[in-house]
Design a protein around this nucleic acid. Structure first.
Lengths: 148, 148
DNA sequence: AGAAGTAGTAAGATTCTCTGACTAATCTGA
DNA sequence: TCAGATTAGTCAGAGAATCTTACTACTTCT
């Protein structure tokens, strides 16, 4: 894998390695806490906005088809993590909202995320960690079509 | 998703967004160039070392079971991207090596990677891009059990 | 040589994802 | 105002990717 100027694998793979480490930790903690969710479910769940989100939007952001997103939301709904409510502004659509049990899971996940980020900060130093985040946020401008 | 000190989603998700952008571009280019590979195949292929790698090692690094890795290597072999050779040092094992057609794919991929990294450098500035890579490489020390 | 460990394969089920076809509600413009 | 186009979502069926369990062949250690 032809690296760039300096050493190591390509920047995308480097990001993937760290991302996966974070992700494993979160999923592990959720499962340990009795929330039996899969990676695929989390990928959709993670995108649900505070006011609820439409299926089509979730699908777009998670980059899966509507059918796939619908399938995963079905599972999440059956397990009590989310609920579908009619969208008052469009009778065709429904809003997928986080249910109470889903909120519990969010809290557990947020705790682990904070923990892992603290470890990263300890390893890199606060200054570099902050710098890293800033660069990633800027990079998002050109890598995420559904911006912040 | 409770963010850390400053704004934006958690650092893992930020990395995932950029990683996925890179990955899509590479996969797209490979397919456009007539290399019909899937994401799953690439994830295994990507880990093959210059001297060839054992199936078990590929599985570990890609974090899938040996069976899954074997399945994907079967596909890659059938398509001519890799070949299995006996491992001279252990008759139980076989080395999975990149075949000529695989090398062609590597070259296409490397080109796209360089292109995307150039775009990122243009957006962030050379100084910050370098800094970003250095931080990611350091982070790998605590996030990748199969180090560099 | 025998026990224990390692490399890989086999079979079958499950999970995830897609394509294509469909219903129902909304928007658009003559 | 109403026919056509668009948008939200579902259904059905197929294919891809992955897992668990169980197995064979070879190696290493004692």
């Amino acid at each position: 894998m032809g690296g760039p100027a300096d050493e190591g694998p390509n920047t995308g793979l480097l990001m993937f390695i760290a991302y996966r480490a974070m992700d494993s930790r979160v999923l592990e903690a959720l499962n340990a806490a009795g929330f039996e969710v899969t990676l695929a479910q989390v990928k959709v769940f993670q995108r649900i906005g505070a006011e609820g989100s439409r299926l089509t939007d979730l699908a777009e952001q998670a980059r899966v088809t509507k059918q796939t997103a619908g399938f995963l939301v079905d599972e999440l709904e059956r397990a009590g993590y989310v609920e579908r409510r009619p969208d008052p502004r469009d009778a065709r659509a429904r809003l997928i909202c986080i249910a109470p049990r889903g909120m519990e899971a969010v809290e557990v996940a947020a705790g682990v995320v904070a923990e892992v980020e603290a470890e990263w900060t300890a390893h890199l130093g606060a200054r570099d960690m902050k710098h890293l985040r800033q660069s990633l946020i800027r990079l998002r401008e050109i890598t995420d079509p559904y911006g912040p």
